[in-house]
Amino acid sequence: MMQVLSIQNGATTKECPPLGRLIVLTGPSGVGKGTLMRSLLQRHPELYYSVSVTTRSPRPGEIDGKNYYFISRNKFEQLVAQGEFLEWAEFAGNYYGTPREAVLKQIRAGKTVVLEIELEGARQIRASFPSALSIFILPPSFEELEQRIRNRGQDSEEAIARRLQCAQEEIKAAEEFDIQIVNDDLETAVNAIAAALFG
């Protein structure tokens, strides 16, 4: 019997066969989600990485359209009103969202789509895509997480304090997710994610 993937779009529900898979990778800021994702994609180019939209400024070395689509708050709010996001959330004073149609198109084409998103967005995906595999990345310790955030050298003390406060709350949510992986050693963590995806 063929399963049916239910895609929530406001009050309407469209049905389409689940040809591909949806994978959600989340965890607190500074835990190394981006680094893990880059390593995973280098090893498994067959995965489709969904590029998120954000209102935050690019960090050094980030490329528009590759790391994120960088847009204004006004434009983001227009896209929200038009129902263009699969999920969206505000985090640390900026909006982040996943473009709906790009993801659904890849799933319909049979691709495994990977989202690297914030906790609130990951919860939205779990609600609308219960069949998605959700992975929560944990730091080896809270002290190590703080060190990683500080080592970035990109945030003010106020921003660091905000990120750490959010991280404490986010870590409590780890049990909500299908798999928890501690990012202590990059190689070990990437192997654990790959094992979860490919058995």
Rank of each mutant, 00 (worst) to 15 (best):
F136C: 04
V113R: 00
E157D: 13
I179R: 09
T112G: 00
A89K: 02
I149Q: 03
S52G: 13
Q42S: 14
A109D: 05
F85I: 09
I179E: 14
D155Q: 06
Q147G: 14
S134H: 09
A167Q: 02
E120L: 13
S29V: 03
Q106P: 00
A189D: 00
L40N: 08
I7Y: 12
E175G: 14
A167P: 06
L40M: 06
E143W: 11
G30W: 03
R56E: 02
I71K: 01
A159N: 05
G20L: 07
G30C: 09
G65V: 00
Q3F: 11
Q180I: 05
R152Q: 08
S57A: 15
V190G: 09
E84F: 09
I117S: 04
W88H: 13
A109G: 03
F76T: 02
Q147A: 15
D155A: 13
I125R: 05
A81H: 13
A11W: 08
T188N: 12
I149K: 03
E84C: 11
I125T: 01
I160G: 01
P99D: 06
R148M: 06
T98K: 00
H44F: 11
T26K: 01
L5E: 00
Y96V: 06
P17M: 03
L145N: 07
F85H: 07
G83W: 05
K75D: 13
E187Q: 11
Q106D: 09
V190T: 10
A196Q: 05
L104D: 00
V80A: 01
G199K: 14
S52M: 01
E90V: 13
G121P: 01
G153W: 15
E15K: 11
G61K: 01
L36N: 04
I149F: 07
L41R: 07
F91Y: 14
Y95E: 07
E87M: 03
L40W: 04
G32D: 11
Q147R: 14
Y68N: 02
I179M: 08
E90R: 09
R73F: 14
R152I: 12
I160H: 04
A102D: 02
